[in-house]
Design a binder for these strands. Structure first.
Lengths: 210, 210
DNA sequence: GTCTATATCTCGATAGAC
DNA sequence: GTCTATCGAGATATAGAC
């Protein structure tokens, strides 16, 4: 018996992990199944023993980010989704709008890596995308107060995603940085989390976040 | 002489117009040249007498929105880019975050229809995308005051784009509406343009905008 | 469970007639 | 300027050996 009991599960996870990376970097249509399988150390013939279609894998790959792919502290926060105080939410904002995150084409949040791809995808994929969005809303909402906590959380998510999506699509790094900084400052000021300085110490603060 | 003097120009414009619509709806990779040419009433063989590659057409299609594709008042504002008062900027925000705009998959602003596609495209395409983004920044900036006018304009753009990009990618219409409304209210309140009611009269206010 | 081999299809781009 | 015809590359998905 040459296969370990959970060998297939491991292989499946390896496929998903590599698919998430490749989809994030190149988009859905531009990645081939053969490419994914090769990256996972397999040949493309065996793909259909794990997934019934490329689309099904796509949904799994989107979900992957917040189940296994996100950095450690983000991970933790998503599980409990109500860490004490504002420390964690502040950490997420810093990390999300950081240059590291902008440049991490492989491992970034799918919310900013795949928005227009998902908008045109199957319900299966959109559902996975919504799960990620809702968990992000929850993270912010848990650290806000008052009756408008949810509405404010939505604004923070829209600002984080909007700022990063634009920064990603722009060839002009100065303009991209302006978008990130403006969004970051505005969030810190309107939430009262801090006086609103970023830029200078932003990148060191979140170094290693991916 | 069976061809009118500007026949080629007209044909070229017809190709671009149909390409913009198809790219917006289906994404870059999912649209074939044959499909575009058929929509323009031609066969795909003649394509390369107008464009040297699919990529070149893509850049033209992105640019098309704000040179010819946007609704009339938006058009006007983009040309002059400094209408008097806040009336025009307010109009743009209403229209941008409207349900009509959300549902207009063919004719929407490329900023929200193609962000992740453009992020992975050639410098040519990204340059066109930047032109659209910068013109939108200008529209807002011209209607804001003080030394922070530009920074505030960036925030408005990020909120408009972020809110709509998320709304587009979500299968849940209630959540999509929440994002649009939250972004809209927040903009009106922080700019002081109005007290911040949307939703109920939002769609009638911008009816006919596309 | 994973391999090789292949059927079937579709695309971008070119060539040459009209 | 636009057509028809076609090349060559590369895709998804399947079949069957091991």
């Amino acid at each position: 018996m040459p296969y370990a009991p959970n060998h297939k599960q491991d292989t499946r996870q390896r496929i998903i992990r590599n698919a998430a990376r490749l989809f994030n970097r190149k988009g859905f249509a531009e990645v081939t199944i053969g490419e994914i399988m090769t990256a996972a150390g397999l040949t493309h013939g065996g793909f259909y023993r794990h997934f019934s279609s490329k689309d099904e894998l796509y949904a799994e790959a989107v979900r992957y980010f917040f189940t296994k792919g996100a950095p450690e502290p983000w991970q933790t926060g998503l599980d409990v989704s109500c860490e004490p105080g504002q420390q964690f939410a502040r950490f997420v904002v810093d990390a999300y709008l950081s240059r590291d995150h902008l440049e991490d084409l492989d491992g970034s949040c799918p919310l900013i890596g795949l928005p227009s791809d998902v908008a045109r995808s199957s319900p299966l994929v959109k559902a996975a995308y919504r799960e990620v969005a809702e968990s992000m809303i929850q993270v912010f909402k848990a650290n806000l107060h008052g009756p408008k906590a949810r509405q404010q959380a939505l604004i923070l998510v829209a600002l984080c995603v909007g700022g990063m999506v634009l920064a990603r699509a722009l060839d002009d790094q100065a303009l991209a940085d302006d978008f990130r900084d403006a969004a970051h400052k505005h969030i810190l000021v309107t939430t009262g989390w801090r006086d609103g300085r970023h830029g200078r110490r932003g990148s060191t603060f979140v170094r290693g976040i991916r």
